[in-house]
C-alpha cells in the first residue's frame, strides 16, 4: 500500500535534514514510538504502538537508512517490524523528500510503500490511510515543537 503525506517544518532545509537524519533525536516526535535503540551499525530497534479502530497494534522491529542524498534532500529508510501477538508484520520503504519553500521553511514529503502480512492485512486500507494522515499531522506538530525548542 502506497501512502504519501506532506507537512511543513518551520526550519531551513539544512536544519530539517540534520534533524531527520538524527533518528534518536527525531524519534520522540513519532506518535506511539518508544525505545529506539541503536545497534551501533546504523540500525535502530524500536516499538511502535498504534490504534486503528478495533485493532491495537504493537510493532517491534528495526529501521535503517538505506540511501541518502543531502544535496537533493532525499533519503530512503527501510522499516521491518512485527506484532508477534497479533500474528502479522510489515515491511515499509519510506522515502523522505525535503524541499525548501519560498518563505524559508521546508516542505517534508513522507512517501511509504508498505507490505502488510498476516493479521495486519485484514485491516481496511481506507482506515489505515486516515490514521497515517493523522499520524503525520501529529508528527509534524511535534517536529515543529522540537524545532522551536532547539531554536
Amino acid at each position: 500500500m502506497k501512502l504519501e503525506n506532506r507537512c511543513v517544518v518551520p526550519a531551513s532545509r539544512d536544519t530539517t535534514w540534520d534533524l531527520m537524519m538524527d533518528l534518536p533525536r527525531v524519534a520522540p516526535c513519532v506518535p506511539g514510538l518508544s525505545e529506539l535503540e541503536s545497534d551501533g551499525a546504523g540500525c535502530f530497534r524500536g516499538t511502535l504502538q498504534a490504534q486503528a479502530g478495533p485493532m491495537r497494534v504493537n510493532l517491534t522491529g528495526t529501521v535503517r537508512i538505506t540511501a541518502q542524498d543531502s544535496d537533493r534532500g532525499e533519503a530512503r529508510f527501510l522499516l521491518e517490524a512485527a506484532d508477534r501477538r497479533l500474528g502479522g508484520s510489515v515491511k515499509t520503504t519510506l522515502d523522505l523528500r525535503m524541499n525548501p519553500t519560498d518563505d524559508g521553511q521546508t516542505e517534508l514529503t513522507i512517501a511509504t510503500d508498505t507490505a502488510f502480512m498476516g493479521a495486519l492485512g485484514t485491516l481496511g486500507q481506507p482506515i489505515i490511510r486516515r490514521k497515517a494522515a493523522a499520524t503525520v499531522e501529529e508528527f509534524a506538530r511535534n517536529l515543529a515543537g522540537l524545532v522551536e525548542r532547539s531554536g
Binding site: 478495533p54 491495537r56 501477538r85 497479533l86 500474528g87 493479521a119 485484514t122
Partner: peptide
C-alpha cells in the same frame, strides 16, 4: 469476533 480475528487479545 474481534478476538477471533485477533484484533483484540
Amino acid at each position: 469476533l474481534q478476538m477471533k480475528q485477533r484484533f483484540s487479545q
